[in-house]
């Protein structure tokens, strides 16, 4: 624990900018700067500007002031989309990370056939965004799917879980948890980076497994846990493909899987209202930025860095 206190003190002291570092940083960041200027910044500015226009993708954009942003306040289908998206983020991210961390811890220890299990658990993630997912998910949660057959065995009558507005979102949450492979791999890589000597020393001191986990694994894995948390939240807010593929692009039934980005996409590409879609994108950016800022602020209290 004392290491954390030390770290906090270091933080308060602030970081000194070194002159030689400036020059080095320029060269190390040169590709990134170039990318920012050549690839990223133009489209970003364009999308911001389009947010203040009516733009149907073919005729020139027409300036309409804040109309698109005002529409956000009164668009009831958008409010539903926000509700759906928040539910999805708040439920699926913790579940997915817990699964990923749990399995990674299990697979990190010596166990026969490790490579096999790792691969087996990763396989679903390979399929995650494939178009076949729509059909495969019906095979699990559809009327004639696996879940209903298991339920039928116990005499419980099932339903079409994907096509019932009360349960459709839950199946997408399960789908997201099912593809926990990516954060799992990142956790595994992180676990592999913890020097074995720490555990050896702790074992000599007679520390139990549990206390080793609390005192060594958790703090040393915290930067990775933090990374996964931040990125999975951003990712979940932008979740699109799975809902798009499973609902056939509609966000149905009854808008129950209408994610924010899916709604945005429909505005831009089905209704040809790219102005409103751009405004929606910048509104989403604000929400995600707020969540990320909170995350970074909270990180001060639980993420441990060695620098």
């Amino acid at each position: 624990m004392s290491a954390l206190d030390e770290l906090r003190q270091l933080r308060r002291g602030g970081v000194q900018v070194r002159k030689s570092d400036n020059r080095a940083a320029f060269w190390f960041l040169a590709p990134w700067f170039a990318g920012l200027l050549l690839v990223t910044i133009g489209p970003v500015i364009a999308s911001f500007a389009l947010g203040f226009t009516k733009y149907n993708l073919i005729q020139p954009p027409r300036f309409i002031g804040f109309d698109n942003f005002l529409r956000i306040l009164s668009d009831s289908r958008l409010h539903n989309a926000l509700r759906v998206t928040f539910t999805y983020v708040l439920v699926s991210v913790p579940l997915q990370l817990a699964c990923a961390l749990g399995v990674a811890l299990l697979l990190n220890r010596g166990l026969r056939g490790l490579a096999f299990y790792r691969s087996a658990f990763y396989l679903p993630s390979l399929l995650g965004s494939s178009v076949a997912i729509a059909v495969l998910w019906t095979q699990v949660f559809g009327t004639d799917g696996l879940v209903n057959r298991v339920l039928g065995f116990f005499g419980v009558e099932g339903r079409g879980w994907i096509s019932d507005p009360d349960t459709a979102l839950s199946t997408l949450i399960v789908l997201n948890v099912w593809t926990f492979g990516s954060p799992m791999i990142i956790f595994l890589a992180g676990l592999r980076q913890i020097p074995e000597v720490y555990y050896e020393a702790a074992a000599i001191d007679g520390a139990s497994r549990r206390s080793q986990f609390r005192r060594i694994t958790l703090p040393l894995l915290s930067p990775i846990l933090f990374f996964n948390l931040v990125l999975q939240i951003i990712h979940a807010f932008q979740s699109f493909t799975q809902a798009f593929v499973v609902s056939g692009g509609t966000g149905g039934p009854s808008d129950s899987t209408m994610f924010y980005t899916l709604y945005l996409y429909q505005q831009g590409f089905s209704r040809f209202d790219m102005g409103y879609a751009s405004a929606l994108a910048w509104f989403l950016l604000l929400i995600i930025a707020a969540f990320t800022a909170i995350n970074f602020w909270a990180a001060k209290y639980w993420v441990f860095y060695d620098d």
Binding site: V39, S47, Q238, F240, G268, M274, A281, L285, I288, A289
Partner: peptide, 18 residues
Amino acid sequence: LGTIMLPIHVIIVPQYVL
């Protein structure tokens, strides 16, 4: 970090134009 917060669907059109 901000650059990954905008959905691809509004970036793609200006980027394609570019």
